[in-house]
């Protein structure tokens, strides 16, 4: 009985996790599968400004639909990914990209994790050095 209910919970969890696959995007797929793949990748990288923690692929806001349409059109017209992101950044700023470029305004954003990694490394080596100097106490085992 419990095994059965566990199984059901697992199934429902799995179903919950796949929900993003059922796309909000109601438009038919692009005929060219390569373009469709690029389109899917791009819309997952672009932030919906109305609901900021969703990409335009996840959001059903009208603006997200407009931006998806814009991306579709640019892709079918042969624009490169770079051209499309430049187009959007010129209008909405770096914030529209989930992976903003490294520049004068974003260096703190990109640099902070490295900074903390560095601090962690310093602390780590320090601890190792202090411990290394301590005599090994045989009595204090696991």
């Amino acid at each position: 009985m419990t095994r059965c209910s566990n199984f059901l919970i697992m199934i429902s969890c799995a179903a919950l996790m796949t929900s993003t696959v059922w796309a909000i995007d109601a438009e038919p797929e692009l005929e060219n599968p390569t373009l469709q793949a690029r389109y899917r990748l791009l819309i997952n990288e672009i932030r919906c400004l109305v609901c900021q923690n969703q990409s335009i692929a996840d959001s059903n806001a009208p603006l997200a639909a407009d931006l998806r349409r814009e991306v579709r059109e640019m892709i079918t017209e042969g624009s490169t990914d770079k051209e499309i992101t430049t187009f959007l950044v010129a209008r909405y700023g770096d914030f529209v990209l989930y992976r903003p470029p490294f520049n004068a305004r974003t260096w703190v954003l990109w640099g902070t994790p490295l900074f903390f990694l560095g601090i962690g490394f310093l602390v780590f080596t320090r601890i190792l050095r202090v411990r290394g100097n301590q005599p090994i106490d045989e009595g204090e085992g696991m």
Binding site: L49, V50, L63, D66, L67, E70, R91, Y92, G93
Partner: peptide, 8 residues
């Protein structure tokens, strides 16, 4: 509106 960066 997209050209003007309108979002809300």
């Amino acid at each position: 509106a997209i050209d003007w960066g309108v979002y809300g």
